[in-house]
């Protein structure tokens, strides 16, 4: 008992989790900067932002919000299942989470392609002829939702790696830091959307 594996595990997981949180702090300021730009321009170009925001489909936004909230619960459930040693449930809930993330992206695809049809995309002639405030709104809309969608994709990859690792047994009821940190990342994706959704889709 001189070498006690659980002892090292204890230190690893605590610091490993702290490291993840610190990374999430940097993510907060990455998106925070964009939120700040959005807020200032919204104050400056209020009528234009109001007009442009009405172009967005609040229904798709709401559906995507529900997808992300449910997926946040399923990933938290996957962690609970793993801690209880229920591998089957962990895999099931992880798969559901990845599927919900996929549905989110499908929705995003339809939402964006609908805008593209109207010629609303970064650098388009339609956009260039819009009032300055509306141009800024759509620029920020694509930047913020695009960066968020990128995070959704990264989250999907991370969760898929977890599925493989749980199947292989390298993530198990004793060692689940990777799953825990991936879940934290996924919750951050949800958190950002919680603010993006009302700011872009609801407040018109």
């Amino acid at each position: 008992m001189t070498v006690h594996p659980t002892h090292t595990e204890h230190i690893d997981s605590e610091t490993g989790k702290l490291g993840m949180w610190i990374f999430l702090f940097t993510e907060l300021f990455l998106f925070g900067g964009l939120f700040l730009v959005y807020a200032i321009f919204r104050a400056k170009y209020s009528p234009e932002f109001h007009h442009a925001a009405e172009e967005l489909n609040a229904f798709i936004g709401t559906i995507n919000t529900v997808f992300l909230l449910v997926s946040s619960m399923t990933v938290a459930g996957a962690l609970t299942a793993m801690q209880k040693g229920d591998r089957r449930m962990t895999l099931l809930l992880l798969t559901v989470t990845i599927m919900l993330a996929g549905l989110f992206m499908v929705n995003k695809y339809f939402e964006w392609s609908h805008k593209f049809e109207y010629g609303i995309f970064p650098g388009s002639p339609v956009l260039k002829n819009m009032p300055h405030g509306e141009l800024l709104f759509f620029g920020l809309y694509y930047m913020m939702t695009g960066l968020h969608a990128l995070h959704v994709l990264v989250g999907m990859v991370l969760l898929s790696i977890n599925v493989v690792k749980v199947k292989a047994g390298t993530v198990n009821s004793e060692r689940f830091l990777m799953l825990e940190n991936s879940a934290l990342y996924w919750h951050l994706v949800d958190l950002i959307w919680i603010f993006l959704f009302p700011l872009l889709y609801l407040i018109t």
Partner: peptide
């Protein structure tokens, strides 16, 4: 809207993010 979003964020951080 911002107040409700903040409440939601607080719930996610304390509960889901543990």
């Amino acid at each position: 809207a911002l107040l409700i979003a903040s409440v939601k964020v607080a719930i996610v951080i304390t509960q889901f993010m543990h």
